[in-house]
Design a protein around this nucleic acid. Structure first.
Length: 270
DNA sequence: AACCTGGGCAACCGCACTTTT
DNA sequence: AAAAAGTGCGGTTGCCCAGGT
């Protein structure tokens, strides 16, 4: 019975402004570790995985938006040549970029390169095949189409690209993101619209519970009936006592950095 | 003006790994 | 030590939009 109910309630697909808002609220309260918990208590009918993904790829403060800079492009190429498709690892070296973003970038651009290359050697020039790449990528045998270009080839073409001023950027994600923001809502708006959030205390080390009780998310839909705030915080205390997730210093506190995001993001994106 | 095509991106899926019980 | 739950990662898919025909 319960399972059927749960199945019915799980939402998929694009996130709405309200869902984003709720998620931001609850990540602020509970940290960005316990996704299953957040998914349950937030009233979002999403899976923990979905919440995490949304947070990591879109809502996380400090995320850069817009096109990759030439430096970033070069770094991606270099790191990919070292590590192959270890996107999360590569992403760690590019502050503000997500693994998903880099993965998408690589896929898009490498596909383009592959097409260009195909065209260039269309008659039949086996001498210039991409055998040089076989010792570089990590996933031999399972390479997908965008891994087949060969890193050295990639590097040179990429460098050309930089020299040419980044032709790929003509209608890049910056525009798209900006348009989307206009069309739907701006992430900045979310952060700006969180006065309650901005005013509450950091959630670290046990002081959050009381404050959190005062906090109400304006757009928040009520949590599912069985979960009262009391029970919620009881549940949370259990975890808290084990130091499972809460940041221990203000600098670690995502929520504070979230607060900063509204200010910084505009400078990041221009 | 309508349709087609490709690019870009967000989100989902399945598997692997880690942590907790 | 083993099972269960939670989390992270890489691959893939589907949607939207812009540009071309």
């Amino acid at each position: 019975m319960k399972m059927v109910q749960d199945q019915q309630e799980i939402r998929k697909g694009p996130w709405t402004e309200q869902e984003d808002f709720q998620l931001v609220c609850f990540v602020g309260l509970f940290g960005d570790r316990r996704w299953d918990f957040i998914a349950k208590v937030s009233g979002l009918n999403r899976t923990g995985k979905s919440c995490r993904l949304r947070w990591v790829n879109y809502l996380h403060p400090g995320l850069k938006r817009g096109k990759m800079t030439p430096q970033e492009e070069r770094l991606v190429l270099e790191l990919h040549s070292k590590w192959g498709n270890r996107w999360s690892r590569i992403a760690r070296k590019l502050p503000g970029r997500t693994d998903n973003e880099i993965k998408n970038y690589w896929r898009t651009h490498m596909r383009k390169k592959a097409q260009e290359k195909k065209r260039a050697m269309s008659p039949s020039s086996p001498s210039s095949n991409c055998s040089s790449s076989s010792n570089i990528t990590t996933n031999e045998g399972g390479a997908s189409f965008y891994d087949t270009g060969g890193v050295e080839i990639m590097a040179t073409s990429a460098e050309k690209k930089y020299i040419n001023g980044g032709d790929q950027a003509k209608k890049d994600g910056n525009d798209t993101a900006a348009k989307r923001d206009q069309k739907e809502y701006s992430l900045d708006d979310i952060w700006k619209d969180l006065p309650e959030v901005n005013s509450i205390e950091p959630v670290y080390n046990g002081s959050y519970a009381e404050e959190a009780c005062k906090f109400s998310c304006p757009l928040m839909t009520p949590p599912p009936p069985p979960l009262t705030w009391d029970s919620l915080f009881k549940m949370d205390e259990e975890h808290e006592s084990k130091n499972m997730f809460l940041p221990t210093t203000p600098s670690d506190n995502q929520f504070l950095s979230c607060f900063d995001y509204g200010k910084t993001s505009s400078s990041l994106t221009g």
